[in-house]
């Protein structure tokens, strides 16, 4: 290791953010991702590590109302952010309608990608309402709910058990219920 390989200052730092409505103060190695901060430092293991490289979507959480891959984000870069994880969306005793719909439509099997799918599903409905276009949007100025829109927008969340078409049914039902 040469001098050029040595960090010039501290390699850890303090960060404060809000997770599921609760303020969290942490001092973390700069290398800790938001995902690992949630799982290993805050004990919220609902967000999953499937690939740790932004290739599967299992780690999807909401930051300031938007879904991101928490594995590709450093925790220290989230100063002041509001983070919602699957644990903040609903609990076993108080399910969110999307969670309830996933159960009834069997939108999962092994369950590992499921928290990420549900975070994405909720975000997808919001993104469509906001008029954010997608790859399958025919007219960039008119974004409307459709099966194709859901399929495309959910494509950043892999499910190897292959429950996609059941998830679509669940998402469709939640949308219709609103």
């Amino acid at each position: 290791m040469t001098i050029h390989d040595m960090p010039k200052g501290r390699t850890d730092g303090a960060v404060r953010f809000v997770v599921n409505g609760k303020t969290v103060n942490l001092t973390l190695d700069h290398r800790v991702t938001l995902l690992d901060a949630l799982r290993e430092h805050i004990g919220l293991t609902g967000s999953k590590k499937g690939c740790d490289h932004g290739q599967c979507g299992a780690c999807t959480v909401m930051v300031n109302g938007r879904r991101i891959n928490s594995c590709l984000s450093l925790a220290v870069m989230h100063e002041g952010d509001e983070i919602t994880t699957i644990e903040g969306i609903g609990t076993p005793d108080a399910l969110d309608p999307m969670q309830d719909a996933f159960i009834r439509h069997d939108g999962y099997q092994c369950g590992y990608c499921t928290p990420g799918q549900i975070c994405s599903a909720k975000a997808v409905l919001e993104e469509i309402r906001q008029g954010i276009p997608s790859h399958v949007t025919a007219d960039l100025d008119h974004v409307t709910f459709s099966d194709a829109e859901v399929r495309e927008r959910m494509s950043g969340n892999l499910c190897r058990c292959g429950a996609y078409s059941n998830m679509l049914n669940a998402i469709r039902e939640v949308e219709a219920g609103k």
Binding site: R66, R67, I68, G156
Partner: peptide, 18 residues
């Protein structure tokens, strides 16, 4: 629109948000 179309052809919704 070419730029919009290219952007939404890339990555995933989560990645594009970041």
């Amino acid at each position: 629109p070419l730029l919009s179309r290219a952007l939404v052809a890339g990555a995933s919704g989560q990645l594009r948000n970041k």
